[in-house]
Simulated scan of single mutants.
Amino acid sequence: MAEVDDVRPLGSSLERSYEVYVRGRLMFRVGQIVYVAFSLDESVMGFAFPKEERADFVASDPRKFQLPSASDMRFNW
Rank of each mutant, 00 (worst) to 15 (best):
Y18T: 10
V30E: 12
M73G: 02
E15K: 12
V36S: 04
E52A: 13
E53C: 06
D56M: 01
L14E: 08
E42T: 11
G46N: 05
G11V: 14
M73I: 11
A70M: 03
S71W: 01
V20W: 05
Y35N: 00
A70C: 01
Y21S: 13
F49I: 09
M27K: 09
G46R: 12
E19T: 07
S17Q: 06
V44E: 12
E15P: 13
P62A: 04
Y21D: 06
Y18D: 12
R23E: 14
D56W: 01
F49S: 07
Y21A: 10
F75S: 06
K64H: 11
L10R: 12
G11Q: 03
V44K: 15
S60P: 03
L10P: 01
G24H: 11
L14V: 11
Q66V: 14
R25Y: 00
F75V: 08
K64Y: 02
S43P: 00
L67Q: 08
F28T: 03
S43C: 09
E3D: 08
A59P: 07
R54L: 09
Y18H: 14
S69K: 09
Y18G: 11
A2N: 12
M45N: 02
S17N: 07
V4A: 05
R16M: 06
R29H: 02
R16S: 15
V34N: 07
E53H: 13
D6A: 06
A70K: 14
I33P: 00
L10Q: 04
A2D: 09
G11Y: 02
S43H: 13
M1G: 12
R29P: 04
A37H: 04
P62D: 04
M1T: 13
F75Y: 13
F38D: 07
F75D: 03
S13G: 12
Y18V: 02
A59I: 05
G46W: 10
L26P: 14
W77L: 04
L40V: 08
A48I: 02
P68A: 08
E15M: 06
E15S: 13
D5S: 13
V4F: 03
M27Y: 01
E3V: 09
F57M: 14
R16K: 15
S39P: 02
V36I: 15
S43G: 10
P62Y: 00
V7K: 06
V7E: 05
R29I: 04
R29Y: 01
V44Q: 11
D56K: 05
M73A: 14
Q66I: 11
V58Y: 01
L26E: 04
F57I: 07
S13E: 05
S43L: 04
I33L: 11
M45T: 12
R8W: 07
R74A: 09
F47G: 09
P9L: 02
M73S: 15
